[in-house]
Design a protein around this nucleic acid. Sequence first.
RNA 1: GGUACUCUGGCAGAACGGUUAUGCGUGGGCCUGCAAAGCCUAUACAAGGGGGUUCGACUCCCUCGGGUACCUCCA
Length: 463
Amino acid sequence: MKIQDTLSNSEQKLDVSKKVRIYLCGVTVYDESHIGHARTIIVFDVLRKYLERKGIEIEFIQNFTDVDDKIINRAEIENTTAEKISIRYIENYFKDFDGLNVKRATNYPKATEHIDDIIKFIEKLIEKQIAYTSKNGVYFSVSKFPEYGKLSKKNIEELQSGARIDIDEAKNDPLDFALWKFSEKKPAWESPWGKGRPGWHIECSAMSLKYLGENFDIHGGGRDLIFPHHENEIAQSESFTESPFAKIWMHVGMVTINGEKMSKSLGNIKSIKHVLENWGPNIIRLFCLSGHYSKPIDYSEELLKENLTKWRQVETCYYELIHADGENREEVNSVMEKIKIEFSNALEDDLNTHLALSSFFQLVKEANRLAAEEKLGKEDAKIIKKEFESMLQVLGLIIPKMTENKKQEITNLITNREIFRKEKQFNEADKIRDKLNEMNVELIDHKGRTIWMKKENIKAEKF
RNA sequence: GGUACUCUGGCAGAACGGUUAUGCGUGGGCCUGCAAAGCCUAUACAAGGGGGUUCGACUCCCUCGGGUACCUCCA
């Protein structure tokens, strides 16, 4: 598999000969997550699920930043503790992302639970004279890391001349960044240099090293983390280990809205909770995967609607497949084989989910075509269904399941409707159909038989 | 201002020098008791502007222009 690497600015082969170690920068837990977060995490979810389908073992680490000024501010506003805030939003996070059908990471380390590791990390940097203590905290000396800027392609002189006026005259150099901030209040820990809390970037260096070791395979996050966050991580980690940090840097494009980045300050946030309520997980995932991950994607109701149409086709396909009972054999093997290969090839090539989706929809169309032409045999359906489900799994899409009781109830209603239809009592027959529609069950009349499909309840569809 | 990315048909979006993908939308049709869903079929001579390189460019180079992101916290 090839992945575009931000550092080398070229495609790199992912080594899958052994366990693949991935570190994804997660969220700062001070507020609700929005679909910008969702996209990044869904992209990595698909990457992970695809690799796992190939039988590759994955160690997937995603951190929670649970110590940060924003959390502290929020706690002050609400007159509560930072810990309570972060606990609340971690719970919130899992609610959102479980709802989006994102597989849980191997581990979700939190900064506050790794203070010792962070302190040890900083100690060694001080020992190496790469970090220094000032009156406000411990700083990383950027000038001691000559390669600084290699990820974001910035050069140090330009950064220095363009640096905004820094209030902190305790720093040797305006580019130096905090590893440890002195503070007496609230979330603060003892350290060899004084009471305080870690800076933002150090946690990822310390925790990725702890859980994934040196030189792990993929480090990811949103594009907006390239500078300064990931740049600083490289500086810290490579100074520490004196060996290359991550092998591949994979960055996901922003979600925009009306062409502008979705962000708190612009007030154009669409929370996952809100979108999930209205559109459900499948449509959101289809939307997030509809373009190449590295490019921005513009959020709009029209696009979600477009994906709703597609999702209905997927549902139809599923129910046609499970209800297929024909004898016909169309020799569907070769087509499926072709689609299957195209699907995988697309993902192998820098996780081209858009092309993978095209293949997937080709399968859906093929199945629906056979069904519409009354040619979908039971055996063929089995073959198609196997691939269908495999792709569904990789894409993280889920057909809502039904209880046996409900299925029986539907079958009974359909039988009754058939009787009315035979007797040409169409009013009565239509009443049953309406009743089923209210249950979000749609009937598909084939020649000589009627099948049903359960439609996912999409609130936004009603508007 | 600097750096990076980006600019494809009504919309969304691929293809990384030679097949004008694909989806949505729209028109027509099939199926149906009527619908719905689905399917079939038609539909766009598209490549930000201008130059090059080449037998041939959406794809490479130059240039001009638009957009976005980052340069402070940010997925």
